[in-house]
Simulated scan of single mutants.
Amino acid sequence: MAAQGFQVDLSKPLVCQVGHLREDYEEWVHQPIVSKEGPRFFESDILEFFTKTRWWVVPIVWVPVVCWFVSLSAGMGHSSPQLILLVSTGVAVWTLSEYTLHRFLFHVKTKNYWTNTMHYLLHGCHHKHPMDGLRLVFPPAATAILAVPVWSLIRVLSTPSTAPAIFAGCLLGYIMYDLTHYYLHHGQPSSQMTKKLKKYHLNHHYRMQNLGFGITSPLWDRVFGTFPPPITTEKRR
């Protein structure tokens, strides 16, 4: 696609190219290429390696961390019912965070070289190549960086004994989000609920990218008025 005299070459690493699209980046990135073969991001093999993550890495890395943080609150005297409540609170906080990040950060409009490049790395690549299974879940290093300010905020807003369990709930919610997201793209749902959720999410990719920001649930889309309208077909006369 040509833009302002610049043409993206899909056979070459994309990260250094997308910034040159400038104002046309928004249109380009929302024209998906439906292929399981992902693009190359960087010329460097080392950088390229760190852009790819298998889905099963997420639970292997983060489930033990969740258990450790829950054990911290348990060791400070919280009972099992209290821990369940605290972890559930963290999961609920995550669902709102998931919606907010997806709507206001992942879909922020950009138009200069560096913001286009950062957006492509963060989320644009997923919309351009939605079936790239190796770039669907967050790399653990990126998740760890984002988790630091979340942990710091929870420590400020809660008590020393409740903060670890609430943070564990946020991490658990994140794990559910990443695995659900992967499943919606690459799984074959059999239940009505999962079929509807997959249809709802793919609608966000291929029909209305400015609506349907929930991944694990459409709850907050309904609350904030961003639930996509049903598809209507006109009868021929």
Rank of each mutant, 00 (worst) to 15 (best):
L10E: 15
K12Q: 14
P13D: 03
P13H: 03
V15Y: 04
Q17F: 07
Q17I: 08
Q17K: 07
L21C: 09
L21T: 09
E23T: 07
E23H: 10
E27G: 05
E27H: 12
W28D: 12
V29N: 10
V29G: 09
H30Y: 12
P32T: 06
P32W: 01
V34C: 02
S35I: 00
S35F: 00
G38T: 00
F42A: 02
D45V: 06
E48M: 06
F49Y: 15
F50Q: 03
F50R: 03
T51C: 14
T51Y: 08
K52H: 15
T53Q: 04
R54V: 08
W55A: 12
W56A: 03
I60T: 09
V61D: 03
V63Q: 02
V63S: 04
V66C: 14
C67H: 05
F69I: 00
S71M: 12
L72R: 13
A74P: 00
M76K: 13
G77T: 09
H78V: 04
H78M: 12
H78K: 06
S79Q: 08
S80P: 00
Q82M: 12
Q82T: 14
Q82V: 11
L83I: 13
L83A: 11
L86Q: 14
V87T: 13
S88F: 09
T89D: 00
A92P: 01
A92D: 03
T95D: 11
L96K: 03
S97T: 14
L105S: 12
L105M: 15
H107V: 05
H107I: 06
K109D: 11
T110P: 10
N112L: 03
N112T: 13
N112I: 06
T115Y: 01
N116W: 06
N116T: 09
T117F: 05
Y120D: 03
L121Q: 06
L121D: 04
L121N: 06
L122E: 02
H123D: 10
C125M: 11
C125I: 12
C125K: 09
H126V: 11
H126K: 07
H127C: 08
H127N: 08
K128A: 07
D132C: 08
G133R: 08
L134S: 12
R135D: 06
F138Y: 09
P139I: 07
P140S: 13
P140D: 11
